[in-house]
């Protein structure tokens, strides 16, 4: 079988790390960091998502095709958000000139 499972201790470490990151992001959200608040919150969320995907979903140990699917999906998502925002965020510029 090419399928991999990791050890219970690895899963436990990831679980504890996820709980610590949740506590951290909750605590940091009360500090006034200005615009950085959103950046910090989303960076921590990205780290948590990576931990879940890489270790709980075994993405790190899967066939090469799987990361390609994930990257492709995220690329489409980036197109969706980027092109839509490039419309909305520039409307004020167009009307004021």
């Amino acid at each position: 079988m090419s399928e991999k499972v990791l050890s219970i201790s690895t899963y436990t470490v990831i679980f504890i790390a996820l709980l610590v990151l949740t506590g951290t992001t909750c605590w940091v959200s009360y500090l006034n960091l200005g615009r950085l608040n959103a950046v910090v919150a989303l960076t921590i969320a990205l780290c948590k998502a990576l931990l879940v995907a890489l270790y709980f979903m075994h993405l790190r140990y899967s066939a090469r095709l799987t990361p390609l699917v994930v990257v492709t999906a995220l690329f489409w998502l980036a197109i969706l958000i980027w092109l839509t925002l490039s419309d909305y965020l520039t409307r004020a510029l167009m009307t004021s000139s």
Binding site: S29, N37, A38, A41, A49, F56
Partner: peptide, 29 residues
């Protein structure tokens, strides 16, 4: 295994919903 993948995916969606809906802007309280 496949249901596990689905369950973890739903978890990841919440991991992003939580800061977006609950946390950002909390410091202004």
């Amino acid at each position: 295994e496949l249901s596990g993948l689905y369950w973890h995916f739903v978890d990841i969606v919440w991991i992003f919903l939580y800061p977006l809906l609950y946390l950002i802007g909390r410091h202004l309280e």
